[in-house]
């Protein structure tokens, strides 16, 4: 990807090279990524109804368990980590369909690919926007769901921290699946089939860290593994997503 991570002067110099589509001076890649991010946030806040859907879904799935299992808080507390993570996994999956869909329909993604800017960075910015709009709110809502399942308030900081790290990885892994299924009709079930197996490590470490946090013990080890997954996803997932978007535009 041309210009990724290079200083502004180097990028501008690259833009005048023979490989670029037109000889215009390009904005530095971080500015472009920041613009893409703020554009996505602005657009999202104009359609607030869509923002609430994953959160409502998360709350709804959490509510199903007391009804299906038992209203006893002691029993609910035991399954709380699993409930929270399965609900978060499904809610973030539900939100993935919005990640690239509108931009693929109106040609924005194609413009991004042709802009000469690094598509990897632009898609990373889009994914960050998506995480700010779905992953972060989920992480902030998780403590309320946890307390409804009988978890004590002392565990709240731990739950939020683990959820924040885990949802970063989930959003990025999901971006690969969303990019692969671009332009496909009825992609919902396939998106789940592609994304969920890849998300299993996040589920495993996230649920374990949450379990330890709820039990009041140290959850450093699983959290570090979860953070390692998130770092790996940050470095590799945007590359894969960019490759998938390019394939879809060929």
């Amino acid at each position: 990807m041309t210009g990724a991570g290079m200083p502004a002067g180097a990028t501008a110099a690259l833009a005048t090279g023979a490989s670029s589509p037109e000889n215009v001076e390009r904005a530095p890649v971080f500015d472009a990524a920041r613009l893409a991010l703020s554009r996505d946030l602005t657009l999202a806040f104009r359609k607030r109804g869509q923002l609430i859907q994953p959160l409502a879904f998360f709350a709804l799935v959490t509510m199903l368990f007391p009804l299906a299992v038992s209203p006893e808080l002691s029993r609910l507390r035991a399954i709380a980590p699993g409930v929270l993570w399965v609900a978060a996994l499904l809610a973030s999956l539900l939100a993935l369909e919005f990640l690239f869909r509108d931009d693929a329909y109106d040609g924005t993604l194609e413009q991004y690919a042709l802009s000469g800017q690094s598509l990897t960075w632009l898609l990373f910015a889009k994914t960050v926007a998506h995480w700010l709009l779905t992953g972060l709110p989920l992480a902030l809502m998780a403590p309320f769901a946890a307390m409804a399942l009988g978890v004590s308030a002392a565990a709240v900081p731990g739950i939020v921290l683990v959820m924040v790290v885990g949802t970063v990885a989930l959003s990025l892994i999901g971006a690969i699946g969303a990019a692969l299924t671009l332009g496909m009709k009825r992609s919902g079930a396939l998106l789940a089939l592609l994304t969920l197996p890849l998300s299993l490590p996040v589920l495993i470490y996230g649920a374990r860290a949450t379990e330890l946090a709820i039990g009041g013990s140290s959850f450093g080890a699983p959290l570090e593994l979860l953070a390692a997954l998130a770092v790996l996803a940050v470095t590799l997932a945007p590359l894969a997503a960019a490759a998938a978007v390019r394939i879809s535009l060929e």
Binding site: I176, L180, L194, P197, L198, L200, P201, I204, Y205, L225, L229, L232, L236, A240, A243, A244, I247, S248, E250
Partner: peptide, 20 residues
């Protein structure tokens, strides 16, 4: 090409999934 990309992503993930 999309399938190939998925297969590569899967191959990178198989050891991670297995060890987790």
């Amino acid at each position: 090409r999309s399938g190939a990309l998925l297969a590569i992503v899967g191959m990178v993930n198989v050891p991670i999934i297995h060890y987790s």
